[in-house]
Design a protein around this nucleic acid. Structure first.
Length: 256
DNA sequence: GAGGCGTGGGA
DNA sequence: TTCCCAAGCCT
């Protein structure tokens, strides 16, 4: 792959997203955790409000759970917000660990992303975009992580990681890749993997996941807790296990 | 290793 | 309207 062409392309098309203007590991961790589940453009207002209210790891560590969940509200996967806060507690008490995956909610991808952007560590950040780009190019057998690290040009991990993800997000898209706009089209297998036909038409509104989300939203809004019977009990049990709610002696839920 | 975990926007 | 998903991680 012509990595120079990739980096040149990225410099031309890069979008000025706010987390690309900082090398503060805390701000970068916030952005990466938000981006784990949500499209970049939708994250922007959440990220800016979050850093406005909670500008440092210490501020997040000391913040009430209600504020954390309010600032997160709309991004989904509430337990990740709590994991982020627990990570901030760790950082404000012990500093940044050399191995970022010691922080709750931080796995191999997020550790490599924050490490390369904040400290210029030379590690390839492999997310679903990078996996797709490399398997399309080189076939299903490729060891994506090893290959990404081979391709990583010396000293350029940060722009390389950004460029690979941007390529996957905007050109080498999951469906309808725009090969005509691809800066590294040469040598690509253009492997098309048919999406697996999965049969699971359960309505989202019937799921426990939905119930959990509605319950947390109701508690934040000061509204009555919805649902009843077994479904409500299942949801509350799960929320309590994840630390998103606590229950009093009568079993009545509230925010921690 | 499969399944759980939320939401809002675009096709 | 309905479907499908979007920069993972944990158990």
């Amino acid at each position: 792959m012509d990595v120079d062409a990739l980096l040149e392309w990225y410099e031309r098309v890069r979008r000025p997203l706010p987390w690309r203007e900082t090398r503060d590991p805390y701000a970068l961790l916030v952005s990466e955790v938000m981006l784990q589940q949500t499209q970049a453009l939708r994250v922007v207002p959440y990220y800016e409000r979050w850093l406005d209210e909670l500008p440092t790891a210490r501020a997040l560590a000391e913040a009430p759970t209600r504020l954390v969940l309010e600032l997160w509200s709309g991004l989904g996967y509430n337990r990740r917000a709590l994991a982020l806060q627990r990570a901030a507690v760790h950082v404000s008490e012990h500093g940044w660990p050399s191995d970022l995956t010691e922080l709750p909610g931080v796995g191999p991808y997020t550790a490599a992303a924050v490490g390369s952007f904040a400290w210029d560590r030379q590690e390839a950040a492999v997310d679903t975009n990078v996996k797709r780009v490399l398997t399309r190019r080189e076939g299903l057998e490729v060891d994506v992580s090893a290959r990404a690290n081979e391709l990583l040009p010396a000293g350029r991990a940060a722009p390389f990681n950004q460029a690979m993800m941007e390529l996957g997000a905007t050109v080498c898209r999951p469906r309808g890749p725009d090969c005509a706009q691809c800066p590294v089209e040469r040598g690509c297998l253009r492997l098309v993997v048919a999406p697996a036909r999965r049969a699971k038409p359960e309505k989202f509104e019937e799921s426990d996941r939905y119930a959990r989300g509605r319950i947390v939203a109701a508690l934040l809004a000061g509204e009555p807790v919805p649902f009843s019977g077994e479904r409500r009990e299942r949801a509350l049990t799960g929320l309590e296990r994840d630390g998103l709610i606590v229950r009093d002696a009568t079993g009545h839920p509230r925010l921690p």
